[in-house]
């Protein structure tokens, strides 16, 4: 049986159309002018026990709304949802007992208390017996090296250490499912790797189902065999991560700052690239941020070094960054039929 079963699930919000200015704000008080936002719009999915699923999509895609419905703090507008055979919103407290939640940027531990005291309080809250507690603390010690941090106040931990503590804490009561929301945000590469290995170990050892929301495709690639891409409240793709990474792993974006950038630079760059590499070259040009020109390259078709060399010779570039493809770009490509 699926651990999480979702069928035709929707959540619509009524939002007041606000007017501008003080007069508008006053008229809003008596306004009945609502529009409906379909945050989640008829999704269906099943998650099996023990899976790690990457749940991704751009901001406003409906990820948090779905998670809030799975965790029982939001009631769906329509459709069915069951977690562990139960309707989550019917009993928030019962639901909380079988799940763990971690937010990337905010700790759920007690800010002023030493780490070990937070764990002891959680032991009481979730009614974890002493033997289980000791066993789990040993696992965390082996994976994370938690003992070293026991006496430190949570507020004095580094972001990475805190994240490791938060993740460990979310597994303490042996939950059926753990929701990890942006667990590696703002962390450097070595800590990211550590967190990924800890999460994958905990999943392996405990068999806990993990639902991971992230903007970092690297997290998904390292942890999840399955990926669900969401946009505008609908599921765009639900399938093996391999399929997505084999496609997008090849993409890199060159971010360029070009001297004397003006209205004609972008089109002239496009033309010259097309002239040099041909029309169907897997190179696209866009300018999303001010000052930066983005050149996205499909390395399977055109080597990045060739494009970079060509641009450096042709344009007065004074700064270059190479970044992995962004989530927004992936979604855009999926729309354009990349996974079709």
């Amino acid at each position: 049986m699926s651990l999480i079963h979702i069928q035709d699930l929707s959540k619509h919000f009524k939002i007041l159309n606000r007017r501008q200015g003080l007069g508008g704000a006053f008229r809003d008080l008596f306004s009945g002018d609502y529009r409906t936002v379909r945050a989640v719009d008829g999704i269906a999915l099943d998650i099996q026990p023990g899976e790690i699923v990457g749940y991704i999509g751009p901001n406003g895609a409906g990820k948090s709304t779905t998670i809030k419905m799975m965790t029982g703090i939001l009631k769906p507008t329509a459709g069915t949802i069951t977690v562990n055979g139960q309707v989550p919103y019917a009993n928030r407290i019962r639901q909380a007992q079988i799940m763990g939640v971690v937010f990337g940027q905010r700790t759920q531990l007690w800010w002023d208390l030493p780490v070990i005291e937070s764990f002891k309080i959680l032991k009481e809250i979730y009614r974890v017996d002493q033997a289980t507690f000791d066993r789990h603390m040993e696992v965390f010690e082996k994976l994370v090296g938690l003992k070293e941090l026991y006496s430190q106040q949570v507020r004095t931990l580094s972001l990475g250490q805190r994240m490791l503590c938060d993740i460990s804490a979310s597994f303490l009561h042996n939950p059926q499912v753990v929701f990890l929301d942006e667990p590696t945000i703002g962390l450097d590469v070595s800590i990211k790797a550590k967190i990924r290995s800890v999460v994958s170990e905990l999943n392996r050892v405990r068999g806990t189902t993990i639902i991971l929301t992230t903007h970092d495709l690297g997290d998904v690639e390292a942890l999840c065999r399955r990926i669900i891409i969401l946009d505008k409240g609908k599921i765009l793709f639900d399938g093996p991560t391999k399929k997505v990474t084999s496609l997008f792993g090849a993409y890199r974006t060159l971010k360029l700052q070009i001297d004397d950038f003006d209205d004609t630079t972008l089109s002239s760059l496009r033309e010259k690239l097309a002239g040099r590499f041909g029309r169907d070259h897997g190179v696209t040009v866009a300018s999303i941020e001010e000052l930066w020109t983005d050149v996205t390259i499909d390395q399977a078709r055109t080597p990045l070094s060739d494009v970079l060399n060509f641009i450096m010779k042709t344009f007065p570039v004074f700064d270059v960054r190479i970044v992995e493809i962004s989530m927004e770009k992936v979604v855009q490509q999926v729309y354009e039929g990349a996974l079709g």
Partner: peptide, 11 residues
């Protein structure tokens, strides 16, 4: 930050 108060099996 109020969101975290929903996720424990407590009043």
């Amino acid at each position: 930050t109020f969101l975290k108060y929903y996720f424990r099996p407590l009043n």
